[in-house]
């Protein structure tokens, strides 16, 4: 989980960018998939060449499954949440497979930290107003979520 905080001195806008933790870039994910494809295909083609052609569909299905798994996990790992705070509004932009944006009026904005009474689940940081709330920083660990709540409060009060 990565939390980046940037404030442009020329404008009155604060921007918070939140990404989930990831070790592989898109490029590396593609190479990983190609590596698996090469290895599985080599084995399947060898057995096809000695008459066991029924290995091919199983290898194909497996490669497809590996591709879907790596793609889904990479999409999830490469999604990000951008919080833009200007003088009047707070915008939360979720980018991933489907982009979405929510806009709240700053004057009415509430920041809520919901803690799970059982302690089984991490807390949830919600921002919103007029009964409409959205979760921010779901990728973050507890400590970072606390920092985000503090940063949001400071940014809203400061600008």
């Amino acid at each position: 989980m990565i939390l980046r905080d940037s404030q442009n001195s020329d404008s009155d806008e604060a921007v918070l960018i939140i990404n989930p933790n990831r070790n592989l870039t898109w490029q590396q994910s593609k190479w990983l998939f190609l590596f698996f494809t090469f290895c599985c295909s080599t084995v399947a083609v060898y057995f096809y060449s000695i008459g066991a052609w029924l290995v091919l569909p199983f290898a194909g299905l497996e490669i497809l499954l590996i591709g879907i798994s790596i793609y889904c996990q990479s999409c999830c790992a490469h999604s990000q949440q951008i919080i833009r705070i200007d003088s009047k509004h707070v915008r939360v932009i979720n980018s991933g497979r489907v982009d979405s944006e929510q806009c709240f009026h700053k004057s009415w904005l509430k920041i809520i930290r919901n803690r799970d009474p059982s302690g089984w689940y991490p807390s949830r940081l919600l921002i919103g107003s007029h009964g409409q709330f959205i979760e921010v920083g779901k990728y973050l660990i507890e400590e970072e979520r606390e920092t985000l709540a503090h940063n949001l409060k400071s940014a809203i009060e400061g600008i």
């Binding site: 932009i93 489907v98 982009d99 979405s100 944006e101 929510q102 806009c103 919901n114 799970d116 059982s118 089984w120 689940y121 949830r124 919600l126 919103g128 009964g131 409409q132 709330f133 959205i134 979760e135």
Partner: peptide, 17 residues
């Protein structure tokens, strides 16, 4: 980009198992 509103209750999907 689409603009959507997420309701607090809808977003609360963490049931206690």
């Amino acid at each position: 980009m689409t603009t959507t509103t997420l309701n607090h209750d809808e977003a609360h999907h963490h049931d206690m198992p």
